[in-house]
Design a protein around this nucleic acid. Sequence first.
DNA 1: CGGCAAACCTGCGAGC
DNA 2: TGCTCGCAGGTTTGCC
Length: 286
Amino acid sequence: MPELPEVETVVRGLDSSMRGRRIIRAEVFRPNLRVPFPPDFCERIAGQAVNKVARRAKYFMVYLEDGTVVIGHLGMSGRMIVRPQDAYPLARHDHVRWQMDDGKEVVFNDARRFGLMLLADADTLEQHDLLVHLGPEPLSNHFSEDYLATELLKKKSAIKPVLMDQRLVVGVGNIYASEALFRCGIHPGQPAHLCAEQAGTLVAAIRAVLEAAIASGGSTLRDYARESGEMGYFQHQFQVYGREGKPCYACATPVARITQTGRSTFFCPSCQASITRRSRKRAACG
DNA sequence: CGGCAAACCTGCGAGC
DNA sequence: TGCTCGCAGGTTTGCC
């Protein structure tokens, strides 16, 4: 699934396609995805103009003129497709279709149905169940070195799964967790209570890899595609993700893969040498 | 409360 | 060619 850069890419495309346009008609072709659609989903959307499309964490949000907000999540395999109306037959896994007033249609397609779409009110959006527990945006000033260092001191498990906890910081998923840790030379299995110096380099690495991925239009793997149907190309810049057994670009050591909390983690055993308890005690930054 | 496995689904590539 | 198996970008739930 799309992580923050992919959702950001989709949101930018949707905003340019939908902002200021009116949704003429809304249709749902399946009663539920991860959660059931609200019973009045289509009626509350149809006929309304779109104020803007924005992102929070990995959610996209379509702001309608009457204060209703469509909250959506792409899950693992969700796509938002913008195409000319009636130019294509309904495809397998097309779950939602919005007909726009400019002759286009916006289609939500999600094979694995881990995605969701529901309605909220703009006034109380931040208090919504899905959003209220989310951590800071990684590209905002709220995600600071002090913040991360302080929060990580409370954690006992390995740093990589902790980075994927959306209550700590949003938008970092399985790919970018591995990529960020490689960039700052931290072993994914290292206990999460990093020293302040490491926390600082990690903040910078997370920002850098997410910004670079956004600049490349996100990553396209398997069934993920950009809103426009074009392909993001950041996957060609992965340093470790999906490169098990291939030489590290920095030192030629074969990239390793391990499983952490059920997810694959990729890292360079040399560049991200694990820090033993003893050597960490000796480390100057403890 | 923290941490982890399992569950939610379908599709695809690898290997036999 | 055709089957089975393992794996896939996320989040929630439930169990220790």
